[in-house]
Nucleic acid binder design. Structure first.
Lengths: 115, 115
DNA sequence: TTATCATATAACAATTTACTTATATAAGCA
DNA sequence: TGCTTATATAAGTAAATTGTTATATGATAA
């Protein structure tokens, strides 16, 4: 049994709802190992750029990710200060790595653009 | 790092969506420690009986709980055979116990009816 | 400054969700 | 048998979600 603090059920439900979407869950798993920018997500998920922005905004509003502007690009990464960081990490461990998506980008030469 | 098998991201997202609702998440936390029947949930959540039935059906369809008929009552409990059992248990550990709801029922004398 | 690129926001539409009330089913009991 | 109780299903509805296209913002580069 781990030592772990509890969180309110309502706030946990909110986090789980955020993660209960295939696109956002895959984003989080990707971010667990890599910073990503919006343009990469657009390529990976094959949805419009606004759709990606709306997903990352939800994750940001929920405190799960943070953004860092690098010139004209905005990179997203896991927010380790989140109240739910530990819970989310535990959860993500159960998911298979999503590096295949990044490798596919690389092979298309699309990973370089925001570097 | 725990030894743990991974599950498909799509199927994990589905489970997390089921848990991403305050009512269902509280139900699961209650079930972690107790069997409950529909009539108890009706009292606890102050929603209609059909609303409760619809929530437990979603949890059952997702394989997270199982039902046992006991006379005219149907008792629900955690399905330990679920592919997502381990993930769900880990998750529930982060939540505070919900026994207060059962104690409240008891004090109203409503816990006895389905025994 | 103006053009371009990355991202965000606004407005809208289709779909899904979470309730409700009304009704059906299934077990227990007089 | 017929009545009551527990639960499920059906049908309808309001609100939330997730996408779209159009447009705004903000940084860079000519």
């Amino acid at each position: 049994m781990n030592k772990q603090s509890t969180v309110e059920i309502e706030s946990a439900a909110h986090v789980l709802k955020l993660l209960g979407d295939k696109t956002r869950l895959t984003m989080m798993k990707l971010l667990q190992a890599n910073e990503c920018c919006v343009c990469e997500f657009v390529e990976i998920f094959e949805i419009s750029q606004p759709a990606v922005s709306q997903h990352v905004r939800k994750l940001r509003d929920g405190g799960l990710v943070k953004e860092t502007r690098r010139g004209q690009w905005i990179h997203y990464s896991i927010n380790e200060e989140s109240q739910h960081y530990e819970l989310v990490q535990q959860l993500l461990h159960y998911l298979p790595g999503q590096e295949k998506h990044l490798e596919e980008l690389q092979s298309k030469g699309l990973r370089i653009i925001c570097k």
